[in-house]
Design a protein around this nucleic acid. Sequence first.
DNA 1: TGGGCAGTGATTGTATACGATCTTGTCGGT
DNA 2: ACCGACAAGATCGTATACAATCACTGCCCA
Lengths: 229, 229
Amino acid sequence: MSTVTDSRIVTAEEIVVQLTEAVHEHRIQPGAKLREDEVGDIFGVSRTLVRQALRAMEHSGLVRIERNKGAFVAKPTLKEAREVFEARALLEPSTARAAAARATPQDIALLEQHIIDEHAALERAEAGLALKLSGDFHVAIARIADQETIEQFLRQLVSRSSLVIALYWRRRNALCESNAHHALVDALRNGDGDTAEDLMKGHLLDLLSQLDLREQVRGPVSLKDALKK
Amino acid sequence: MSTVTDSRIVTAEEIVVQLTEAVHEHRIQPGAKLREDEVGDIFGVSRTLVRQALRAMEHSGLVRIERNKGAFVAKPTLKEAREVFEARALLEPSTARAAAARATPQDIALLEQHIIDEHAALERAEAGLALKLSGDFHVAIARIADQETIEQFLRQLVSRSSLVIALYWRRRNALCESNAHHALVDALRNGDGDTAEDLMKGHLLDLLSQLDLREQVRGPVSLKDALKK
DNA sequence: TGGGCAGTGATTGTATACGATCTTGTCGGT
DNA sequence: ACCGACAAGATCGTATACAATCACTGCCCA
């Protein structure tokens, strides 16, 4: 089966979702080229819709488009990586506090199911899926806080975080232990905003500490970059 | 002159900039329809580029696109209006602090020129232009802080703020007195991060207090909206 | 007289076609 | 043998063409 979605209505948004998932789950590596014809063939649509999708992903920072060159999965620099987590540190703690004040039992149940799914993915050694679910968890909190604007920003930041993790994660084995997530859910259930805010702040710092943002030893983008001088 | 830019290379980005400016300066009202053919004729390009531009503006929240209906300048609801300023309250104070630690004499000079331009626009009774410049001032601070990610978010938030102001501004005459901006520049010049952060926080609260976010009494966009039922 | 319904024009959605630009491979000169 | 110019192929950028959908008008009928 060459086409992912046979006999289905494929919209640009659908392509964005599928590609985004693939990037989140690290099935497509940062720097990978996304040729318009190729993607179009896979989804069974013309380049028109593919271009729309790629532009959308460029706006959310997941894809970089170079004129007359094409679209590539973004490769955040060290600076960008730091900026992403700095922005998250500004947005998420307050949002967690707001979520604690609004979380309904249904919300809590949803988050708990989320954690279960995450564990299951880890046990099946599907690290990519687990990472994606972990990101969704953070977005879900913004949704519970009923902050659509921040949720939208956070979606972008979580996406870029996934790229950062693909590039700068220190030890591949130990994925973010969801103890932090568990504790957060507890705080939300109790409506304890102070604790939720602190836990979120700590959780983000913890994530950051597991990244290797000191020196760029990682493989260079292009040969030109690698060999210049 | 029917075309804004005769004998010039017009790119999608150019269209975004021009349209965005027009919205910022309130020359296009929230809710206004942006027909693809019409915009295309004005800029002398085909609908392809116009669609690209409108999609981009949709992503930044300045335009809302309804399938098979067309693109409209966004009309933030009361909730969205509040969210915009809540998000700014989270991002900007810290950013002002960071800017205070990094601002060079050139940066300060740039901001001061900004304030002068703003005053000049006010004296010429060009309220729209003054508003746009005022927004640029906030973005400039993020740039000084060297936070590209936050700068990008802030650009969107300032855009939407412009829409919010168009819809919910209480008294049309008194535009944001740039005393606040002046004091901020002073703090930045002195490298006083604490003061800069506090001033920014107060400035945003001040802006918010000048909005009428209680009830939506404002006039509807189209006759149909006005007369339905 | 008022509501439903089909026809028509206008507008958007998607695909295709053509031109521009970059990359790559080859050939001739030095 | 090496370097530069040129040509062919691939890929992207923009315009145009056609299909789908929507809004509106005018008609018909209760």
